[in-house]
Nucleic acid binder design. Sequence first.
DNA 1: TGCTATGTAGGAATCATTCCTGTCTAGCGA
DNA 2: TCGCTAGACAGGAATGATTCCTACATAGCA
Lengths: 150, 150
Amino acid sequence: MKLDLQDIEARFRRHDVRLTRQRAAIYAALVETTSHPSADDLYRIVTRQQPMMSRNTVYYTLSVLRNAGLVREVNVGHDMARYDGNVSMHHHLICLGCGQIMDVMDEELNRLHLSSGQARGFDVLGHRVEFHGYCVSCQQVHRNVSPRRR
Amino acid sequence: MKLDLQDIEARFRRHDVRLTRQRAAIYAALVETTSHPSADDLYRIVTRQQPMMSRNTVYYTLSVLRNAGLVREVNVGHDMARYDGNVSMHHHLICLGCGQIMDVMDEELNRLHLSSGQARGFDVLGHRVEFHGYCVSCQQVHRNVSPRRR
DNA sequence: TGCTATGTAGGAATCATTCCTGTCTAGCGA
DNA sequence: TCGCTAGACAGGAATGATTCCTACATAGCA
Ligand SMILES: [Mn+2]
Ligand SMILES: [Mn+2]
Ligand SMILES: [Zn+2]
Ligand SMILES: [Zn+2]
């Protein structure tokens, strides 16, 4: 989704996040893609516009945005953290070959819950569903290529 | 589950895993607990019996057992990897306060699938469901304690 | 416009995990 | 039973994503 500075400013204000050039660029890049980039992917993207930006600022900004609820972290095994600018409830479909992450929007999955017998007294706040497999272009080489670490 | 050396030997043979003192100890420790220990937890446990064992051997053995399908890796955010000696299909309930991981056995969850429209051509091989919340003993401090990184 | 709490850049530190290398040994065949 | 050899082990070094530290800069408010 394309966001202009107005939208970003409004969202940041609503979530009590101070607006800086760096943060706006990082957040915009994240919301405009559906590729669930890593911190380093984002660093590469935003330094095209702002070459002086520190990799550290990307990490710090992502933690600020995450705490504010504007961004989510998506973890795939022990690869580096991936980030998601879409904070509406949804799940993911992950390719074991190339690591791409696709969104899955499904109301049934969103409504999953645990019976009280299974919850063992936990106060359950949320859940996450991941589907694993091989994308179309990875299916041919499926057996030849060593899958990413899980 | 308690395993004797006979059982371990049989399983290793069936999965083409060479039997060593170190591997038997690591695998036994993992199957005998339901706590989903980290590599370092296992290192601490097995070095009580075999003080000369290298931390490296624990990592290497876990990767061998994982590739053989005798062990699974369970990842919680970016904390260190946790391991599961129970390879039957099941899911997990994770405490955001103390990090404990409990098993969830539920046939309905095991049968989840994606409609072909959602699968986008993926060859879907499996899925994983995690429930997140606070365990009984963490519920009191819920608001006071900063949750583990997710 | 000036103040101050916060953010940024850049470098150093961390630490779980992986890599390397020189012994050692499980498992097999003679 | 004995030796051979592919594969496993110990220990230390290296890696690399992430976090920590600190001096300088600036957003946002009075
Ligand atoms: Mn997503
Ligand atoms: Mn389990
Ligand atoms: Zn793929
Ligand atoms: Zn807990």
